[in-house]
Design a binder for these strands. Structure first.
Length: 222
DNA sequence: GAGTGATCATGT
DNA sequence: ACATGATCACTC
């Protein structure tokens, strides 16, 4: 059955807490969804399953999952120690028409204003259906975290504005990084070139580094 | 192609 | 061992 959209933050958190400790196979059967053997061809499967269970409006809009609640949903694969196994995708990076753009009106800023983190066991040795959901965490950036994010965002956007997008590596940025975000490296989109004109580049996305998300998860239990 | 959901798999 | 760069599926 498709879940209705939660009407309040309390209702959303209650649903999230009710998933803690549950196997993905059980959540899948509750939503009439088949469990894939592995995630090689279903990389977004867990995220979409959790969206379905929590009643997120499945869509491809560049907005928060629960816009009416001001909450973005992120599932995060963790190992047996609770450490994230992957970086966390935030949003596509704008590569043109970025003049006048500021941190406060950026999509990264808005999506990270309030995030519901749902940890899920992610080790490949555990069959997908046997993986269990962890305790959800509702997070808002601390002043220090917000400052780190803003600093990285501004540095990266400055390089994009200067036509250096193809020279930016994932090492740029302390907590926020820029990496390819496309079906493959042949996909092209418009970007700013060194002389200020338009060129074609592989699309990029903003990702949160592992150490940063780990800090979010562990601070919650300290 | 651009957006959503991310994980894969190779290089270092 | 691990993060970077590459990739997968789907919708519109």
């Amino acid at each position: 059955m498709a879940k209705s959209s939660p009407l309040s933050l309390n209702e959303l958190m209650e649903r999230a807490h009710n998933m803690a400790g549950i196997r993905l196979a059980d959540i899948a059967s509750d939503n009439n969804i088949m469990v894939p053997t592995d995630l090689r061809r279903d990389k977004g499967w867990i995220g979409q399953l959790i969206e379905s269970e929590l009643g997120a409006l499945a869509g491809s809009k560049p907005e928060q999952d629960f816009l009416h609640l001001g909450v973005e949903l992120k599932t995060i694969p963790i190992d047996h120690k609770g450490k994230p196994l992957e970086t966390t995708y935030v949003t596509v990076a704008p590569l043109i028409n970025i003049q006048g753009m500021t941190w406060e009106n950026s999509v990264v800023y808005h999506k990270l204003q309030r995030v519901l983190w749902v940890p899920v066991e992610g080790e490949r040795s555990i069959p997908v259906g046997e993986r269990r959901v962890g305790t959800p965490i509702l997070w808002q950036p601390t002043a220090q975290q917000a400052k780190q994010l803003q600093q990285d965002w501004e540095e990266i956007m400055e390089l994009i504005a200067l036509g250096q997008v193809d020279k930016i590596t994932a090492r740029q940025g302390e907590v926020l990084q820029l990496r390819p975000k496309a079906a493959n490296s042949k996909v092209l989109t418009e970007s700013i070139s060194e002389d200020g004109s338009i060129q074609l580049s592989n699309p990029r996305g903003f990702y949160l580094k592992i150490d940063f998300t780990q800090q979010i998860l562990t601070n919650e239990f300290s």
